[in-house]
Structures are given as C-alpha cells and as structure tokens.
Lab assay of single mutants.
Amino acid sequence: MIVFVRFNSSHGFPVEVDSDTSIFQLKEVVAKRQGVPADQLRVIFAGKELRNDWTVQNCDLDQQSIVHIVQRPWRKGQEMNATGGDDPRNAAGGCEREPQSLTRVDLSSSVLPGDSVGLAVILHTDSRKDSPPAGSPAGRSIYNSFYVYCKGPCQRVQPGKLRVQCSTCRQATLTLTQGPSCWDDVLIPNRMSGECQSPHCPGTSAEFFFKCGAHPTSDKETSVALHLIATNSRNITCITCTDVRSPVLVFQCNSRHVICLDCFHLYCVTRLNDRQFVHDPQLGYSLPCVAGCPNSLIKELHHFRILGEEQYNRYQQYGAEECVLQMGGVLCPRPGCGAGLLPEPDQRKVTCEGGNGLGCGFAFCRECKEAYHEGECSAVFEASGTTTQAYRVDERAAEQARWEAASKETIKKTTKPCPRCHVPVEKNGGCMHMKCPQPQCRLEWCWNCGCEWNRVCMGDHWFDV
C-alpha cells in the first residue's frame, strides 16, 4: 500500500509500505531520502505521535493516508518512550493509558441525555464484534464512529474520518494533550489543546475536521460531520418502519427517538411537499423529531443533505422563500418566477423588478396576487391545505425507538455506581478489583462488596467470576 509523507509540512511524497511495516522502518526510509538522522524524526498522525514499535496496521493507516513527519531533536526523557523501550505506560498493571487514536474515538455516547454525564468515556458498548469485510486488514473493525456528507465523488452519507490540525499553522502536526470525549470537544473551536510539532510553531489549540472515509482524499478535501447519525450498535428499532437498520439518525429530543435514513428521507420529502418545515429565527429551515417532541429541531442543517441534490435544492429554495415571508415580504405569483420581494408595508401595487435578471417585471396586487387592478379585489380565496398535519407515529413504536432507553438498560445490566462519587462504572470481565475512572475520584473498590478495596476482598473473592 501507499502512504503519503509530508516532511516538515512540505509537499508530500509517496512511500510504499506493508501492513506489518513498523513506524521506525518508515522513519528509516524517510531519513534516507531526506539525509537526516532517523532518531530525530517524529511521525504524527490523527493528533498522535506514533511509536517506533507500532506497525502501519496498528495505527489504522489506510491506503493513501497522509502522515506528517517532522525533524525535531529529542528532548530529555522522550527518546526512550518513542523507541518502544522502557515506557512506564506499558508496564503490566499500570494505570496510565495511551491517548486514544482519533481513528478509534467514539462519540456516540454523547447523544445520551444530559443526566448521563461521564458515560462518553466510561461506558463502552460490546456491539462492535462484526466481522471485518472481505479485503480489510485482519482485526480491523467495521464499526463506524462518525458519518459525514461527502460532496465529492460519493454525493451521499458516508463513514467519516476525524482529523485534527494546529489552529495556528493549519498543519496536521499537532499532538493532542488528551483525546475528545464528546461532540462539544470536536465542534467547539479551541476547546481542546495540544502541542504543535512543526518547527518554530508555538500553536497549542486544536482544530478538528472530518474527511470522507470511503475514498482517498487530499489535504484540502473536508466534509461536514453529521453528528446525529450513528451506527445502530444498540439495535434500536426505527420509529417509523420498526426495522432494525444501521446507520440511524438520533433526534435530540428527551427520548432520543431513532429513525433509519430511508424513513428520514421520506419524512423530509413529505414535509417538504406540504411546505411544513419549521422556520426558526436562529436555526433556519428545519424539522423536529418525527414524533413531534418539543425542543427537538435539527440544529445542523447539513443533515438535510440526505435528501439528495434535487430535493436539497428545493429545500434551500423553500427556506429562502419562507425567510422572505417571515420578513413581511411577498413572492411573485407569476408561474416560473417566484422571486422574493420586500415592498413597503402599505404598498398595494407590487412590481417584480426586472433588474439584474432576477425579476420578471410582472405587476400584481398584494392582496389577491392577481395582475394589478384598481378598486376592490374580486375574490380572495383562503389558501387550502395549509394546516399542519401531524406525522403519524405509532405510540408503541415510539416507545421502542428510544436510544436513551437502550442506554439505561445497558447501564443497569453492566454497571454499578462507584461507592464514593456514584458514577456508573462498567465491568466487562476481569477481577473484582475496580478503579473509578473519574479523575477527581480514582477510588479503588470491590465490585462484589461495593466497598473500598481491602485485604478481605483480596483474599476471599479477588478473582471470582
């Protein structure tokens, strides 16, 4: 396979590697080409510095992935760790964990309700045991953590790749202090920090972006993250068709209702045909949960890209028209025109101005929308079919299609509260000796007794199943 190397943020060049090629071997190839010592090179990928003893497969490097290699003399205490030698983080029983690669970060837990604080980093599902597709590297999971809308060759929703760059020099040479644990960490600028490894760059702020994971991409090709779309790892039924499908869209209502993408497309087109989208002054033209839940309008309007190009163009047109109407304007009634106009409040005669090729020149009556006339309008008909009709959803289907309910059931079956801080902690095999993952707590306690870890627990039921 081919990976592209950008040395000291210059133009990239291809390097041929195998899945079992080590990072140090990659350094040696680059060092020979650039005429520099291999031990002064640092390989940066997806916000993480890659260790010498890791392989291309370990690092989730795919065909035509772009890695950054910078030349920086080692500072005291760094060289041993980078070589894969006596790194205290690798000691058996050590409590410190390697910062998780962005290629394996899962933010789907952050669609849980606000009262489930902490689960994004504490609760991990076991539903990723799908067998890898044919042709994928051994052991590589097909679980997708992110979804994007690819405006490039795909023109559809695709699995996405999370990447990070330095907000100062805009190069992907920043190593994160810690990985993101929720969508806010990724979507809110300057929320996460790190250290830029580019020479002479003092940058410390992280800037995240997404790429389409279905095809090789260049540095400049980015895609918009659709953070309401998630892999259906909890096997929730769709609120409309009641099938279990994946991926799904999880509405931001209190129940976190789930809808499959085909039904979401149908829901949007139906509402669009009836012009029953909601115009929100802050958000724009949007839709609420299909069950009509309060405070559930979709905030990231790129989710409506699921409509496809033709329907999305209609959505944008109707949204612009609705904006004009909300501002007190009118639409030209001549067939084939429909231009938005903003006449004076007491102006009865409205002319669709033909300047700049935008208007048709038609003069019409503001009251009856017919060709302009003197005197009273002959008839004014009330528009028919403008009443909002509820999208029919079966109550039982709505009850079963809740992301929140599956989460709470998982928590109930696989977790116990920490005796000190009461945060839910998952036990997935292993011994009875637990350690609270909350940095402010870190209590060592017994899963069996529910009390602080002691010699009695150690001698009596340390390794009970």
Rank of each mutant, 00 (worst) to 15 (best):
S407G: 07
N58Q: 14
S255G: 06
R420K: 15
S141D: 09
G375W: 05
C201L: 00
T410A: 10
R72A: 13
P133I: 10
I306G: 03
P437C: 06
L123I: 08
Q100A: 12
C150A: 00
G429W: 06
V105I: 10
E310P: 07
V117P: 13
F146S: 01
G152E: 13
I69V: 14
V330S: 05
P199N: 08
I66Y: 10
G375S: 08
E367M: 11
G203V: 02
P335W: 12
D39K: 05
E28K: 07
G340T: 06
D130K: 11
F146P: 00
S181A: 13
P14D: 02
T217G: 10
R334Y: 06
T270S: 06
F209Q: 14
G160H: 00
Y149E: 02
V30T: 03
Q326K: 14
G135E: 14
E404D: 12
W453E: 02
D262C: 03
D86L: 11
P437A: 07
R402M: 10
V186T: 03
R420T: 09
G118N: 14
V164G: 03
Y372E: 07
P199V: 06
Y143A: 08
E49L: 03
L342N: 10
R6K: 15
S141R: 12
F4L: 10
M458S: 15
P419W: 03
F208I: 06
E382L: 14
C368P: 02
K76N: 14
K412D: 11
E426S: 09
T410V: 10
V43T: 03
D394E: 10
P73R: 06
S141K: 14
T21D: 08
C196H: 01
E96D: 11
V29C: 10
N232I: 00
I122T: 15
F264A: 02
H257Y: 01
G194F: 03
T125V: 06
A398L: 13
R97V: 12
W403P: 02
Y147S: 02
I306F: 04
N235M: 09
V423N: 15
N232Y: 01
T270E: 05
Y285Q: 02
V164Y: 12
P294V: 11
Q389V: 14
G179E: 15
E367A: 07
F210A: 02
H373Q: 02
I66P: 04
P73V: 08
D243E: 15
G284V: 02
C169T: 00
Q57Y: 06
V29K: 11
